[in-house]
Amino acid sequence: MLTLKRLNVPLDRDVIFLAESGEEGQVEWGIQYMVENHWSEIQAEFAIAEAGNAVRKGGKERSVNVMTAEKSAYPVQLLVKGTAGHGSVPLPDNAIGRLSQAVARVYQWQPPMRLNDTTERTSSASPPSARPPKPHATTDFSTLRNQQKSRSTIRLHEPNPQLHAAKPLSPPNMFAGGYRVNVIPSTATATLDIRALPD
């Protein structure tokens, strides 16, 4: 925005800097609040969000990434009810045991990779020097596709943002159940942080 001002760039409409505190966990205090209560002051044609990021090296901008879409978050809670009892008498419907099996199945789930216009072009559009490659990163989607076809070679939870952009995710991030070591609990819960592809 400083550059726009200094260069006296003619603008068709306002350029607005918006900093809000909600982050993705409390949007009711952040962007959701702004949209619901102050949309008339914004009416943005498009937004450049922080997740797009910019890379600067040696004081010079090397790249500015722009998001064209964002995954949709669908957090869900799994609730298992079982028979309460004493730990000395194990029960077949133990809530934590059954929930653990369900969470394990979700954790091992391999949803298919699906590309949109942006992810299809990402590897070829990104300047090679924009960001140093991470040890586990694979930026070639054709390689990722081949890995997808060969379940024996793909790493389930590879720390690869490129791969994450092309697949829905569902990591189990919360798990709760029980209150005493010798008591079989009647309930157990787990929360999945499902991130679905935008289309």
Binding site: E24, G25, Q26, V27, E28, Q32, E36, S72, A73, Y74, P75, V76, Q77, L78, L79, V80, K81, R98, L99, Q101, A102, R105, V106, W109, P111, S170, T191, L192, I194
Partner: peptide
């Protein structure tokens, strides 16, 4: 959700949407 249900493969497990990204409407207002 149907796909998740299929993966979980246990009909006794309840799946509840928490949905912190839902826009507030008359239907889900507190």
């Amino acid at each position: 959700m149907a796909e998740l249900r299929k993966v979980i493969n246990d009909p006794s497990i309840e799946i509840k949407a928490r949905g912190f990204y839902r826009p507030k409407t008359a239907a889900n207002a507190d």
